[in-house]
Design a protein around this nucleic acid. Structure first.
Ligand SMILES: [Zn+2]
Ligand SMILES: [Zn+2]
Ligand SMILES: [Zn+2]
Ligand SMILES: [Zn+2]
Lengths: 177, 177
DNA sequence: ACAACAAATGTTATAATATAACGTAACATA
DNA sequence: TATGTTACGTTATATTATAACATTTGTTGT
């Protein structure tokens, strides 16, 4: 029974979808990689060693991370890699819905629930650098509704809201007050 | 009486906000530049010759256009320009709300209603390359609502919906049928 | 196991987008 | 006109991404 919802992951996260500071991050990485493995097996695509490692690095960062950052992290661990190496892995992961690209940051972030053809909506905190992926039906239906009214056929959506997350606002207040 | 709504522009456009194929484009460019001039005068900022020309080129294209495309267009008309020249003008125009950046295209497009602190939502047609700027209250309030619920303080929004506009869908049907 | 093919990766070079740093010119204000 | 500020010119470089082709690895049929 592949690809079912995994509540254990949700419970590992802050209710507002931003990863909390003290979450069990290893479990968080392991869960994501485990899901990715099952998903690739189910789809009959190969999550090779390199692709697996790139996805692992993305989740280890647990925030949107640039291609050249990943490249450097690979290099630091001894893998002599050049740009096409990383971009090919990123392309695979994007094609298979295992990561998302954040256009406003030129960065890549792991997807919580791979395989679903879901609307990727992101709230991105400029203070902590973290991104929360959402699936707000109201936002999605508002957009679909407008598209229908103007006869627009939707192929892709980029919805990236930047600002400051609740945690970081609180920390800023603490520092000031 | 600066910065008021100008219905004459709306009437120059297709109801779905995509510029129609036969719209009076010169009027469209003139109107945008005129508004920009008043706006800059009102705000006490300088729409210099270069900035004016860059904005004019952007509107002349009347679709999202890349920085290096603009650079080439400037060069073709004899202005020996280098990247900083164009990027500085783009920065000025962005800062003053006269253009928007389309993150998913690395491109820049003129803003219909400069000066308003409006939500920039775009529907972008991959066939004709045109972009429709919207201000759908439902979309905006759906996003604001979600932000409020998770305590997120919004600073900027990137909402870019890609696909095929009604006109281009019709043309595709005509070609096939 | 072997050949033959396909998929993935390595490698080198280059494209496309954007900014840093510093000098010069134009403009504003007094 | 002197002075300070803003904008622009110019050179170099940073950042992000892809093209092209060689090599390796994996798969499939025999
Ligand atoms: Zn985590
Ligand atoms: Zn934060
Ligand atoms: Zn026009
Ligand atoms: Zn179109």
């Amino acid at each position: 029974m592949p690809l079912q919802g995994d509540e254990s992951v949700k419970s590992n996260k802050h209710p507002n979808n931003f990863p909390s500071a003290d979450h069990d991050h290893q479990r968080c990485v392991d869960s994501a990689l485990g899901k990715a493995e099952s998903y690739c097996t189910a789809r009959g695509v190969r999550l090779t060693k390199l692709r697996h490692r790139v996805l692992e690095l993305i989740w280890a960062n647990h925030r949107p991370v640039g291609a050249y950052d990943l490249l450097q992290q690979l290099t630091l661990e001894g893998h002599k890699a050049s740009p096409p190496t990383i971009y090919r892995s990123l392309d695979f992961l994007l094609d298979n819905g295992l990561i998302h690209r954040i256009n406003s940051l030129n960065a890549y972030v792991g997807c919580d629930h791979p395989g679903l053809d879901h609307a990727a909506q992101f709230f991105i905190c400029g203070a902590c650098g973290q991104a929360a992926e959402l699936e707000d039906t109201k936002i999605d239906s508002a957009i679909s509704g407008h598209a229908r009214r103007i006869g627009f056929c939707i192929e892709g959506k980029t919805i990236e809201i930047s600002g400051t997350c609740a945690n970081c606002q609180q920390q800023q207040r603490d520092r000031q007050g």
